[in-house]
């Protein structure tokens, strides 16, 4: 799923801020899979992950007034809520970050994951293969599995400084990769 065009995102936010309950259904259809992708990687237990998804949408609904389009996209704001809700849930239930108990669940997640690939994300998925595996690993551990940089350092037995360098390089590569695909899409749309 690609980003909502700015215009429709703006009208969606307006409808949500006005308390329009039909808008939350639109929001759910557009973003639940992307948010659940984050949540289900942090909170491995399916029941808890589903609970966290519900909490996330309730928080989005309750706090939409505090969303400021000047500070970033709606999805950035929502994925931060999903991320924090998942981390809070882990801490509340006194569970370890999912990565430490991932064995055996990986297949389950990947099966779900494969099912969920929409046609228009395939381009992005291919692009991600160009990101160095050790970069993907660090981003996934930090962002999707709720590790701290220190825990990544301990788990992978690499110095903390290297974790920091990799994190920065990974995000910057990611930024450049996506900048490239946007340019390519623009060129393609001009040619067609």
């Amino acid at each position: 799923m690609m980003m909502e065009p700015a215009q429709s995102e703006q009208s969606l936010v307006q409808a949500l801020k006005a308390g329009n309950k039909a808008a939350i259904a639109r929001l759910y259809d557009s973003y639940s899979a992307a948010l659940y992708g984050i949540i289900s990687r942090i909170v491995v237990s399916e029941n808890l992950a589903e609970e966290a998804l519900q909490d996330t949408f309730v928080k989005i609904w309750n706090n939409i007034e505090s969303y400021d389009a000047g500070k970033g996209t709606l999805f950035t704001w929502m994925r931060r809520i999903a991320h924090n809700t998942s981390i809070d849930m882990l801490r509340q239930k006194d569970r370890q970050p999912s990565g430490m108990t991932l064995d055996g669940n990986e297949g389950h997640i990947d099966a779900q994951f494969q099912n969920s690939i929409a046609v228009d994300t395939i381009g992005v998925r291919h692009l991600l293969e160009r990101l160095r595996p050790e970069y993907q690993q660090v981003i996934d551990m930090l962002y999707f599995q709720g590790y701290t940089q220190q825990e990544v350092s301990d788990e992978l037995s690499i110095p903390l400084g290297t974790v920091k360098t990799r994190t920065r390089a990974a995000l910057n590569d990611l930024r450049k990769l996506f900048a490239t695909i946007i340019v390519l899409l623009l060129i393609l749309s001009w040619l067609s």
């Binding site: 899979a33 589903e50 992005v124």
Partner: peptide
């Protein structure tokens, strides 16, 4: 943030 947005969207899981 945009890069991370797209990364998260590429790794979507259908509930």
């Amino acid at each position: 943030e945009g890069a991370l947005d797209r990364y998260a969207q590429a790794k979507a899981v259908q509930p």
